[in-house]
């Protein structure tokens, strides 16, 4: 049909159609990547629209999570565990970030008595 034409015109979604080997029939890498992407984008939108500092950090955790799903799916796709190892590091960084960032949030809250991120405009220099 004219799919060839559209394929030549636009980036196609032929990738990652191979099933995740042997284990999950009917589910391709793209399924996981799509879910991961949607979750990432939801986290991103949350980060951009929410003004509560805590929720903003929650949204970054959401993005970390989405990245983790993608990494594990890739690892499974390649039949190795590098992805899982990397997720562990992501987890580490997320934990460290949560500890530091939340301490900072507490600090900022004490200074302005509000959690609104919009009141911090000193970055404009």
């Amino acid at each position: 049909m004219d799919t060839t034409m559209t394929m030549s015109m636009l980036p196609t979604l032929v990738l990652a159609q191979g099933p995740v080997p042997e284990l999950v029939p009917g589910i391709t890498l793209f399924h996981y990547l799509a879910v991961s992407g949607i979750m990432f984008v939801l986290g991103l939108i949350g980060f951009l629209t929410r003004r509560n500092l805590i929720v903003m950090f929650l949204c970054t955790e959401l993005m970390f999570q989405a990245a983790g799903i993608a990494l594990i799916a890739f690892g499974r796709f390649h039949l190795n565990h590098t992805g899982e190892a990397f997720v562990i590091f992501v987890l580490t960084v997320a934990a460290a970030e949560a500890a530091l960032a939340l301490a900072l949030v507490v600090l900022l809250f004490r200074r302005k008595e509000t959690l609104d991120g919009s009141v911090w405009t000193s970055m404009k220099g």
Binding site: P11, L15, A16, G37, F40, R50, R51, D116
Partner: peptide, 29 residues
């Protein structure tokens, strides 16, 4: 509190987010 009830620039953020999604998916493809 007001900053929890009202989201900030939802249209731009949503547009940017889903633009990223579409581009990411195209790259995956």
């Amino acid at each position: 509190t007001e900053y929890d009830r009202v989201s900030r620039e939802p249209v731009i953020a949503t547009f940017a987010g889903f633009l990223v999604l579409a581009v990411l998916a195209s790259f995956m493809a």
